[in-house]
Design a protein around this nucleic acid. Structure first.
Lengths: 160, 160
DNA sequence: GCTCTGATGTTATATGGTGACATCTGTTAT
DNA sequence: ATAACAGATGTCACCATATAACATCAGAGC
């Protein structure tokens, strides 16, 4: 079975793609993708595992001579989340790059508890089931969050 | 339309019910619902809004002469979550009493961003849609989390 | 060049959560 | 009864996550 994000892949390509799309989207919207924001986005994309704000902070602090303040990172992350370029994984207090920026944003994730990889979904059945359950109770949906903790295919079969 | 948890209701009854069920469940399981744990459960049930660990901590510190340590609360919460008596709302870093302890635990919540009330669901369509989406990708579900941020019926119509 | 707006820097602090180890308390076996 | 044990709690120190308040800076439009 093909995996959404194989453990082995050309990740540099993922990063370049993400930055390119971010440039295009922000350009079209008139949003300012400043150097700090762009760099934070790049650091979020370090892997397909959600990264904590302080991990990104440490990276930033290492490259510049002077240490970066937490607020710098949080403000950049806030911008990136607003622009739909980054998602926040609530159950991990961490951030991951969006694979479909500018498009649908269901906020559905399969998070592997072994390797830490988070795969983003936009499953229409899930989306619709939640919408129906909520509106059936008179609840106005603003931001649905689905985070499924479990074991990804690659981590289920150690011998293969 | 009837609401799952009306703003006006006999909440003392909710608390008594929750404690009674907790006593019965722990008794049947041989789990020790000690005085601290029971008191924390009661404080979680202060309202139908998720409460932070430190809010509970403050309550505990006020009643006893000496301040309570965070660990005391976190250990009690850990026990209560393990026993299925309390749920953790990931998106709020807060805790809320389970309305169906001992039964199904889908971990689905409608969280009102105005009044803070969280209503627990166990919608079979949502549950099944998530299961299907995950297993269809070879993902082994361990703990699904659904937290829908939005506006509850009571908060949608200020004039009524 | 001036000015305004939005972005960033700085400092301090709030909030949420654990590790390590000592002590206590209730249960069980003798 | 009591020794011995396991699980629960206390204590202290600390790490991790996030934000408030205010000053300063940089770029866009006039």
């Amino acid at each position: 079975m093909p995996h959404a994000v194989p453990h082995q892949h050309d990740h540099a390509h993922c990063i370049i793609d993400a930055l390119t799309r971010a440039d295009a989207l922000c350009g079209a919207r008139g949003a300012r993708l400043t150097s700090v924001r762009r760099r934070v986005l790049e650091l979020v994309w370090t892997s397909h595992r959600p990264r904590g704000a302080y991990a990104i902070l440490d990276d930033l602090s290492q490259e510049g001579g002077k240490p970066t303040a937490p607020l710098t990172v949080y403000r950049a992350l806030e911008f990136l989340v607003e622009q739909g370029l980054v998602h926040r994984i609530e159950s991990l207090n961490a951030y991951i790059g969006c694979i479909t920026p500018g498009g649908a944003h269901a906020g559905q994730f399969l998070v592997c508890e072994r390797c830490g990889t988070a795969v983003e979904l936009d499953d229409p059945c899930v989306r619709e089931a939640i919408r129906a359950a909520a509106t059936g109770r008179g609840f106005l949906v603003h931001r649905p969050t689905v985070e499924v903790c479990g074991v990804c295919p690659d981590c289920q079969e150690p011998s293969l």
